[in-house]
Design a protein around this nucleic acid. Sequence first.
DNA 1: GAAAAAAGTTTCCTATCGGAAACTTTTTTC
DNA 2: GAAAAAAGTTTCCGATAGGAAACTTTTTTC
Lengths: 209, 209
Amino acid sequence: MSGQKSVDVYPSMVIADSQDNVKAIEKITIGAQLKAIRTNNKLTLEEASKRTGLARSTLSKIENEQISPTFTVMQKLATGLDIELPQLFTKPEKKQATGRRDITLSGSGKSHVTSTYEHELLATQFSNKKMMPYKSRVYARSFEDFGEWVRHEGEEFLLVLEGEIQLLTEFYEATTLKKGDNVYYDATMGHLVISVSEEDAVILWVTAS
Amino acid sequence: MSGQKSVDVYPSMVIADSQDNVKAIEKITIGAQLKAIRTNNKLTLEEASKRTGLARSTLSKIENEQISPTFTVMQKLATGLDIELPQLFTKPEKKQATGRRDITLSGSGKSHVTSTYEHELLATQFSNKKMMPYKSRVYARSFEDFGEWVRHEGEEFLLVLEGEIQLLTEFYEATTLKKGDNVYYDATMGHLVISVSEEDAVILWVTAS
DNA sequence: GAAAAAAGTTTCCTATCGGAAACTTTTTTC
DNA sequence: GAAAAAAGTTTCCGATAGGAAACTTTTTTC
C-alpha cells in the first residue's frame, strides 16, 4: 500500500472576469488530500463510501479532481472519515526539524523598560515561535502603578527567579510567590505582578497563544 | 487489502440510514458565517460579488442556505473576502476568560525520576494547556547516558536556574550555558542536556507544540 | 498464469449548483 | 410620501455535481 502519486504541485489560477477586482486564487487540491487521508487509513473507496454515505464514483472523481465537491459532501467526508474539515485542504505541515535555536546569555536579551517592569526579551532571533519568553524586573509595588488590569490572549507561565512577588488577578485573592514558586494562568483574565520583597523581584515568564 | 479488516467495530453512535454505516453529520451553517463576514466588512452582495467573482444571486442563496457551495466556490469566497477558508465554517471562538490558574510552590510539583533527569512537573492541575513547564535536575553527564538524541514535536525554551549545563544538539556544536543563560530551540532537532558543573545543574524548561 | 475477486474509473443520467435577469424589498432623495 | 436607487431574493436555465451501474485495472487465489 505504498505508491501514492504525489500530486504536490499547486498551480495557481486566476478568476479573470473582465471586471477586475478579482484576485488570483491558490488552487488547493482537495483530491490529493482526500486520497492521502483515505489511503493512510487503509481504506478502499468502497469502505470510505460506506462510512461517508457517498458513492464510490463520487469519491473517485473527487480524488482525481474531476469534480469540486459541495460543502455538504465535504461535511460528510469529514464526519465519515473522522477528521476535521480543514484537514481536507490544509496541507499537513512538513514537520521536519528546522534545527533553529537561539541562545540568550544572561543579561544579553533586548531590554524594554516601562514604569512598572523592565523586560528583557529572550530568544529574539528565533522568529515566529510558539512561545514568547522574557525575564522581568518588577518595579511595580501596587495595583495603582498600573491603573488597570493587564489582559491579553493566550496563557502565561511565570516563575519567580529572585525576590518575592504578589500575583494579583481579577478572579482570585492576591497570592504571594517566593523564589522558585510558579504559576500558570489564563492571560485573558486580568492579571498583574508587583514586587513585595525589599529588592525588586525578578521573574521569568513565558506566554503562548 | 487485508490487514486491519472488515469487522471494524463501528462506533456506537452510528446512525443507520437504510444502508447502515452512516453517521449523523453535524450541521454547520456556512451561510450564516458568510453573511456575518460580509456584513461585518460592510459589503453589499454586489461588492462581495465583484470581489469574489461570484454572482449576486449565488451569494444570496448561499447565505440563505438554499444551496451548498462547491469547494471551488468556497475558495473564491475565501480569496475574494480575504479570509482563511476554515473561517467560513468555524464559529469564532468565544474567547472569554476562564480565569484558570495553577500555582506550584517551589518543590511541590509532581516528581518523575529517570537515570538522566529528575523532572518536577509544574502546573499539573491546569489541564489542556498550551505549554508544559517543568523544572529538572540534570543527572546526565555525557551523551552516552542517553544513548540517543531526544526528539519530539514542538519547541522548547530552557533556562538554567543553577549550575552549568551543556546543550548538545544534532546540528550544532555543544554549547555551555550558565545560570541565567537560556535557549529556545526546535525540539524536533535531536537535543540533550548534561550537567557540567560540580553540582548537578537545575534547569527550567517549557515546551509547546 | 488463468480465473476470480477486489479496487478503481468512466459512463450515463438525474438532481442541484451557479449565473443572468426579472422581481421584490428596503433605503435614499427631493 | 412618491419616485428613484440600491440591496436583496427568486426565477429560469445552462452547467455541473453526485449516484447507479457498466467497464477497466489490479490483486488474489489455486
